[in-house]
Design a protein around this nucleic acid. Sequence first.
DNA 1: TTGAAAGCGCTAACAA
DNA 2: TTGTTAGCGCTTTCAA
Lengths: 333, 333
Amino acid sequence: MVAPKRAKRVTIADVAREAGASVATVSRVLNGVDTVAPRLAERVRAAIVDLGYRPSAAAQDLARGRSGTIGVLVPDLANPYFHDIIKSVSVVARDAGSRVIVMDSDEDPGVERELTEDLIRYADGLLLCSPRMPRADLAALAGRGTPMLVTNRQVAGLALHSITVDFFRGIMALCGHLARLGHRRVVYLEGPEHAWANGERLRAFSGAEAFGLDVVTVPCGSTTDEGYARAPAALESGATAVVAYNDFVALGVLARFAELGVKVPDDVSLTGFDEIDMARFSAPPLTTVAVPRDRLGRLAGGALGRIMAGDEDIEPEVVPVELRVRGSTGSVS
Amino acid sequence: MVAPKRAKRVTIADVAREAGASVATVSRVLNGVDTVAPRLAERVRAAIVDLGYRPSAAAQDLARGRSGTIGVLVPDLANPYFHDIIKSVSVVARDAGSRVIVMDSDEDPGVERELTEDLIRYADGLLLCSPRMPRADLAALAGRGTPMLVTNRQVAGLALHSITVDFFRGIMALCGHLARLGHRRVVYLEGPEHAWANGERLRAFSGAEAFGLDVVTVPCGSTTDEGYARAPAALESGATAVVAYNDFVALGVLARFAELGVKVPDDVSLTGFDEIDMARFSAPPLTTVAVPRDRLGRLAGGALGRIMAGDEDIEPEVVPVELRVRGSTGSVS
DNA sequence: TTGAAAGCGCTAACAA
DNA sequence: TTGTTAGCGCTTTCAA
């Protein structure tokens, strides 16, 4: 093994010296300003390679007054829901010449607030995905002047740019589907308590109750484990259909039901939400609601870009969803 | 909506003026240096709040000569395998007062190299998870002097700090288990071609062949979709057991088999690798190999910390794995 | 087309 | 205990 040399940083001045040019010229070459004589530019490039020079991001950011970075905060990196959004935003960002840095708040409103404070110092713009933090925190952030966009959360009376999903309609579609199959009593396995998405679903259920559907609610969460754990409670409700907060939960329920000898959909129907990949690979495949996450991500990326460019007139968007009927729902026997 | 004011940045000088102190004092308060008179410190803190001041990350990083950031690169954010590692590293980092920024190369060696170049300018240290880039690129990076650590990849003859998983033993355990069940011919659904983990598995299989196990190989990948797609090919091999590259692939195979009416494990046995949550929720639950990802993550975080602190004497570690026998494997009929 | 030099906002000697 | 000031490495006028 070669002796490790923690070399002192190579700076733009070193390159300038090596190339026999000024730092200004090196900077020009670096930034693709084409008012540099080809021969000189070549010497500079050679020096850069020779010395293995990399511009310091901190110095560039400071001098430029911006970081070329957009910060994305998600409550759970493991959830493909956010993953797809990150991917799409990354593509949009890349096209705009900026990079994306991602942080995971682990569903904790406190951590979320903290990470956001951090992110705000590093990034030119912020994308808060399904933020769980209290309204007041969000308000404070919004008042700070940093360009930002929020997904899956609407806060009445706050000048907050947002792109949301039509969860309300999704649940209505699900309920309508179940009602047509003859279900009169369904149990809803609730999502994370601070999730706006959960509130929207609850709103939709009370709408469905107006149509004569009986809805009982069981606290749960957003993971397979939680679905697995709460499945018996769902059963006890005496409902003929279980509406899980999302596909993960539904998959957990499905597994537990299998263990308990409960047949889906013969004994009880089951639905998910989000349409993750696994939804169509389960046995039976899951009736769920498809959310166009890539579209959501692209919209978010585009809107955030415009906001960062100073455009304050961003229309709040609500992306539509689509019911996917599969084998996990059936008519009441 | 209130008129949006893209306020000019509040700087440390503004705070100093407001508080009637010097910038040095403000800096001291900011950094918790306790040689500031309580009353003065209080005034400074009040000014900070009043003005809504946030230190510029770029300026701090530049002045300090470090960023307090560690960069993590993963080939696929969606894979819980990496997710768990990120979580553990984040915890270690947080305890050390630094933050983690994550980037996803999307399994593309080119993008990977590019992102690493970027990361290296932002971070004090690098954690490359299962890098797919060619040996030469890795060598160039290693020679650059940035503290870095690689997981799941060993490169002979390169002074590269690494922490790897004992994939070899994992596959051997799996093969031994299958052999004891009477299997004589297994088919291996290969992982991503640039993955070191795949190479290790192949090595292990040739070891198993020495014990009389017949192994045929089918190119596949690392996702459920790919498993689903290659399942028929696996069947055609005439093997009595399918060893999937990982649990995702196995789950895809399982779904396809169910559609095709192939019974697991009666008609054919099936194994995964990694032990993701879903592995025990499938029907039948998956025989797989558990990888202690949290431990891997903590080890990585700790080791990287030491490397960044200048300790060059880091022992390469190989974390052990554990066979988990479940319902998806059975004896040959 | 090139270079000199003034910042960018902060930290950390060094003085007082 | 506090303040002054010289950098940190880069970009970007402004002159030449």
